[in-house]
Design a protein around this nucleic acid. Structure first.
Lengths: 196, 196
DNA sequence: AGAGTAACCGAACGATCGGTCGGGACAAGG
DNA sequence: CCTTGTCCCGACCGATCGTTCGGTTACTCT
């Protein structure tokens, strides 16, 4: 059963506030003072919930990475024709990116100044390679165009998908996940698929 | 004639060093101490050449913006069928982005914490709108697909182009501008153009 | 009521931030 | 030679950085 708790911060609720500020000001541009103002508690109180600024970053990018890697463990990403698996993964990437928008946004902006950031960059590269392998398999099946290098196409498609964090805002009446995912897959695969 | 000067820094040569460091560590993550180490001169000496950290940022993003807006002033961006002008602009964007890579990279990463950054974001939006208008005109001509919203397509294509700064490195023997520009236009317009 | 503890606070820590200051080294022009 | 101006430096400024600490409040449990 869910025990009715006090109206106070948990590491998770504090994280959601912190990530929002990180995305507005940038991680390096955000001071603990900024966080305390945004959270409505004192600077020192933050340390009662989390070990420090970097732990907040680690929790945030972990959540984003878990969401992305989770896609690859789904059934439809693991079975069937490579091109179909790829299209499924691309669609799910958009959905996860929107569902975990602030966390993925932060993940996509880390620069590698700390150990946590370098770890995040490494895991991102690993994910990219997994998807690139899928695209390569689809190319080997003859299901996608081969006149452009696989690595290059991967990067451009990732660029298109990842750019969503720069403009998508869940403004109630705006576009929903489904519409964005449709647009991305149509635009990406309309160019990817062999003419015919 | 070019007067033979002393082997010392100018605001321009100092800028090229600073921009490189800004892109590695992020603007907020870069201290004047970092810049002085990278430039090989003392921290205070930097202030002999430029007014401060923010002027370096302003010079950098100005250079990037000048390059991008310069495209819209070119002849082929101003005359002819909208779809052709659009394709030309997209190709030139890739070329400018690569030619001024570190400066455009920095431009695309500003968050809006200072007046300079907010000004840069405003000018970026203006450029985006100019290109979006071109795409809208091409759609009105019936030259590009209309099943996806113009604004959405613009953002996705911009996302694809801008993502180049995240991976392109002029590694001597790597891809050149032309090849990347070809790939981008093929991928973008292969999806953009009406089936036929 | 009293004990225990989770949540919070103000004050202060050493370190580092962007920037200033007075002055020294050095080349060019007389 | 001496002056002039460029270029650069170490030392230092007040402010802010992330973090720590001792202590207070407020809720839970018995």
């Amino acid at each position: 059963m869910t025990t009715a708790k006090r109206d106070t911060y948990t590491p998770e609720t504090l994280l959601s506030v912190a990530v929002q500020v990180f995305n507005e000001r940038g991680y390096d541009g955000t001071s603990m003072e900024h966080l305390s103002k945004a959270a409505g508690i004192s600077k020192s109180s933050i340390y009662h919930h989390v070990a420090g600024k970097e732990e907040l970053l680690r929790r945030a990018v972990s959540r984003a990475l878990d969401g992305l890697f989770g896609i690859l463990d789904e059934e439809r990403a693991d079975a069937g024709r490579a091109a179909e698996r790829l299209e499924y993964v691309v669609r799910r990437m958009v959905e996860v990116l929107i569902a975990e928008l602030p966390y993925v946004t932060l993940l996509l902006r880390v620069r590698g100044n700390t150990d946590t950031e370098r770890w995040a960059l490494e895991r991102r590269r690993e994910f990219d390679h997994r998807v690139a392998a899928l695209l390569k398999a689809a190319a080997a099946d003859g299901d996608v165009r081969e006149d452009i290098e696989v690595r290059l196409v991967t990067r451009l498609v990732f660029g298109m998908i990842n750019s969503i964090v720069e403009w998508y805002r869940p403004d109630g009446r705006g576009m929903n996940e489904r519409e964005v995912a449709d647009a991305v897959t149509q635009l990406a695969f309309g160019g990817l698929r062999k003419a015919g």
